[in-house]
Amino acid sequence: MLYCTYEQYQTAGGTLDETAFTPLCFRASKLIDRATFGRAEAHTKGCADCAEALAMACASIVQSLERAEAARAATGYAPGVTSVNNDGFAVTFSDGALAEKQAAEAHSILSGCLGHDPHGLLYRGCF
């Protein structure tokens, strides 16, 4: 399930065209499913407030993924590379896996959009 539409993304200040938006929205939605352990999709059908909050979060995560892709394209480096030195051929990678950093940033965005999370979508314990 995609948590936001292209129109919601544009309303949130997105600048991508629809063909570039769709794969990033799919990735953002998967990050939301990961953070909520799949509970968000079923919950949005009955709670309009959470559906709106998840749409805002999805649009923000798409923008975050867009910035990461733009930075990678601007430098020409492989994902996770922070610097390259050709003289001694040194490549410096960022700490931690890039996918985990994106997941952590997505979780932070999601947590901010859901606020105090009254329905426990981000709850990691046992029910």
Rank of each mutant, 00 (worst) to 15 (best):
R72D: 10
E52Q: 09
V84W: 05
C25D: 06
T11K: 10
A51H: 13
T92C: 01
A90M: 12
V62Q: 07
C25G: 12
H107M: 13
I32L: 08
L16R: 12
I109P: 05
S83G: 11
L65D: 00
G38N: 11
E69C: 00
D33Q: 08
E69I: 01
C47R: 11
Q63W: 07
M56Q: 14
T5D: 08
N85P: 02
A104N: 14
A68W: 01
R72Q: 11
Y3P: 04
R67G: 02
A59W: 09
A103L: 12
E41M: 04
T19D: 14
L16T: 06
A90T: 11
A40T: 01
K30L: 08
Y77N: 15
G88H: 06
Y3T: 05
A74W: 02
A55P: 03
T15Q: 11
A70Q: 14
G80N: 07
A59I: 03
S60W: 11
F26G: 14
T19W: 05
F37G: 06
A74D: 13
A78S: 12
Y6D: 00
C25V: 07
A78L: 15
E52I: 14
Q10L: 14
A73P: 01
E18H: 12
G13T: 03
F26E: 13
G14K: 06
E18W: 04
A104D: 15
R39Y: 00
A70P: 00
M56Y: 13
T15F: 07
A48E: 15
Q102R: 14
G88S: 15
C50W: 01
L98Q: 10
V81R: 03
A70C: 02
K45E: 13
V62N: 01
R34S: 12
F26L: 15
A48M: 09
Y77H: 09
F37T: 05
E7F: 05
F26Q: 10
A103P: 04
G76V: 03
F93K: 07
E66C: 02
N85Y: 12
T5H: 10
A12L: 07
L24I: 08
A71P: 00
E7Q: 13
